[in-house]
């Protein structure tokens, strides 16, 4: 099996006339955590949203180039977007559990893609909640509204909701920005665990977080992917002056 699950070739993205991503060429490794860092507006969230085609929802976006996931170009005309997004799940910056019960949040995804019976749903529920360490806390209150949970629990629930549709890739768009430092550390532990079975791409403006959790790091600036490599190398021996300036805190 190819060690790279995602390969991006000559990717350009425009919002109207604004050139938001400039000739991106990069590959992301399977079952690793890859971090995308860079100052606000550098295009890191946009690049993340290229991978599950969430940019399609925005008017006036045009994209050229290739994005291969397991060798298939997801920008091919016949790509099934529902299947793509099932395979490539996303965790958002602000926890966004649906205004439904905890139970209904978890079974939301599985019932979109099939007609699982009660037993299967039960099995999915337990497995997903256990994977994010929420089962013991929530097993007696599954009927309660998901909005009654703490922010950290909500974000975990969103991850569990995602795991319920059995994705392969998890896109995380600054998943800890609404959380306090302790909750952030706990979520980072969870990411490390999940990386044993899933490929994780995380966008973060927190360089220490990238250094703590990721195997590979990409530094982006003004739509360019300036430098990409093993996290230890990026943080200790950056090759590009702009990377070094950002990491040493000269801007950003």
């Amino acid at each position: 099996m190819n060690p790279d699950i995602i390969t991006i070739r000559h990717l350009d993205l425009y919002y109207g006339r604004f050139h938001a991503l400039k000739n991106i060429n990069v590959s992301f490794a399977r079952q690793r955590i890859t971090a995308l860092i860079g100052p606000s507006g550098c295009g890191k969230s946009t690049l993340l949203r290229v991978l599950n085609r969430m940019n399609d929802l925005i008017d006036g976006v045009s994209i050229t180039g290739q994005v291969l996931i397991d060798g298939e170009n997801i920008y091919h005309r016949e790509t099934n977007l529902m299947q793509l997004r099932k395979k490539v799940g996303m965790v958002f910056q602000r926890p966004n559990p649906f205004p439904l019960s905890i139970y209904d949040n978890i079974v939301y995804g599985p019932t979109l893609h099939g007609r699982p019976n009660r037993n299967q749903l039960e099995e999915i529920l337990v497995r997903s909640l256990k994977a994010v360490h929420l089962w013991d806390e929530l097993k007696d209150r599954l009927g309660q509204s998901a909005l009654s949970l703490t922010e950290e629990q909500q974000q975990r629930l969103c991850i569990a909701r995602l795991l319920a549709v059995e994705p392969e890739i998890l896109l995380m768009d600054e998943p800890c920005s609404a959380l306090d430092p302790l909750a952030t550390l706990q979520l980072e532990d969870l990411m490390q665990e999940l990386a044993k079975a899933y490929t994780i791409i995380i966008v973060t403006h927190n360089m220490q977080q990238a250094a703590r959790v990721s195997s590979d790091t990409g530094f982006m600036l003004l739509g360019d992917l300036v430098e990409f490599g093993p996290t230890s190398a990026i943080f200790t021996r950056p090759r590009d002056e702009r990377t070094e300036d950002y990491i040493s805190g000269k801007y950003g």
């Binding site: 599950n52 929802l57 977007l81 529902m82 793509l84 439904l100 939301y108 979109l112 893609h113």
Partner: peptide
């Protein structure tokens, strides 16, 4: 944010409207 969450789980627009 809810709509995005639903679409990102692979829901169609109609499923998102009906279920969420």
């Amino acid at each position: 944010l809810y709509r995005e969450g639903s679409i990102a789980l692979g829901a169609t627009q109609w499923q998102t409207v009906r279920k969420l």
